[in-house]
């Protein structure tokens, strides 16, 4: 058996276009998951706020307990039954963001809970409100501890984004499949696609590690 990478080279412009789409979808989903994860993570710190806590917990339980693919299909094929017809890319971003956000929320909650209680107490005793104390004192310290697990979540997010190809989004996965459907060189094309994902996940890890390093230096 010989490998023939000619279809990969020939399809390179499409693969790169798909890569850009993958990056865009992932980046948008990352932002959504960060905002969602922060909110839900903070809400889930305090069971006393019953309603909010209940909603946030149900969200985390449901999202973590069901397949991402089903969630994406619910958005893409399910919502139109209610007359809600979102464009495919938006379904992809929302689906991935909501999914990843549930994991990020646990990262956020864990990191905040790992900060000594005395930090919040000291901030409150100086007259800061809960929000100010959280923002000024607890979150900056928690953020540093979030970075390593957040790196894992980002890797998962990039890899999971391959599923949005099933929502007709022209990401790198779908562009690859398109090349295969005309060239029938599945092995070579999937190797190329895998390599692209590998580069993306490692680039993301590298960026987060630089951030982590910089924050360590800053603390002196």
């Amino acid at each position: 058996m010989t490998l023939d990478f000619a279809p990969v080279w020939g399809g390179l412009p499409e693969l790169l276009k798909g890569t850009v789409v993958t990056i865009e979808v992932t980046a948008a989903a990352f932002l959504l998951s960060a905002v969602l994860g922060l909110l839900v993570g903070i809400i889930r710190l305090n069971p006393a706020r019953r309603v909010l806590y209940g909603i946030a917990s149900a969200y985390v339980a449901f999202i973590r307990g069901t397949p991402l693919l089903v969630q994406l299909f619910l958005l893409f094929f399910g919502l139109p039954q209610f007359g809600i017809l979102l464009p495919a890319w938006l379904c992809g971003v929302i689906g991935l963001g909501i999914y990843s956000g549930s994991y990020v929320s646990e990262v956020v909650r864990g990191a905040i809970q790992s900060i000594d209680r005395g930090q919040m107490e000291a901030a409150r005793s100086l007259g800061m409100s809960y929000r100010e104390a959280m923002w000024e004192v607890v979150l900056p310290q928690a953020f540093r501890r979030m970075l390593p697990p957040l790196g894992n979540e980002t890797i998962a997010l990039i890899k999971n984004s391959a599923l949005v190809s099933l929502l007709t989004i022209d990401d790198v996965m779908r562009e690859g499949q398109r090349i295969i459907s005309t060239s029938f060189r599945a092995l070579e094309v999937y190797i190329a696609v895998a390599l692209i994902y590998f580069i993306l996940t490692n680039a993301a890890t590298w960026i987060l590690r630089q951030l982590e390093k910089r924050m360590t230096v800053e603390r002196g």
Binding site: G118, E121, S125
Partner: peptide, 24 residues
């Protein structure tokens, strides 16, 4: 209530056994 409590806390200094300085 929270707002007045914060104001009163601001006028009540507290020093802890474990310092609780902000490390960042």
């Amino acid at each position: 209530p929270d707002k007045e409590l914060n104001a009163l806390r601001a006028e009540t200094g507290m020093v802890f056994q474990s310092f609780n300085l902000f490390p960042h």
